[in-house]
Amino acid sequence: MMRKLLLCCVLFSSVCIADSLTLQRWDTTSFSHLKQKYRQHAFLLVIWSLDCPACFKEFTALSRWKEQYPDSNLVLVSTDASEMQDDVIGVLNEYGLNNADVWIFSNENKATLRNSIDTNWFGELPRSYFINIQQKTFSHSGALTSNQLSQWQRIISTVKTLSQ
């Protein structure tokens, strides 16, 4: 009986996560809070939206990467309106990205929020920021490929090994 219960828990764990998934509201202070939270750790910040075909192409690669490296720090920020929250959660569940640090733009002026992330960003999506252990940031516009994610993973792993 206990074994069956355990099996059910494993099978439906993703559903449990899906049901309880809540998006944090991204405001003008969120990026600095994130940097604080991930201090001494590398993380990948990806900004996306529901109406961005290239973002979904990237999600396929991200999903594979996150499955392979579940401990990697991935932050996903949706620029959609808060009323689209359920659709955003649906996509995150579908791609198995519900274990990432997930956010949605607050109702503040979108231009203000964009500016709080990067004053040099033209607004194209997806937009990614690789933030290393020293908090140096490398930006990229367009869908990330599996190859780029592997390179990033190699860098993280190398730094981790060196610091141990």
Binding site: D51, C52, P53, A54, E124, G142
Partner: peptide, 8 residues
Amino acid sequence: KTDACPHH
């Protein structure tokens, strides 16, 4: 040259 959505 990009694989991004400009929405623009």
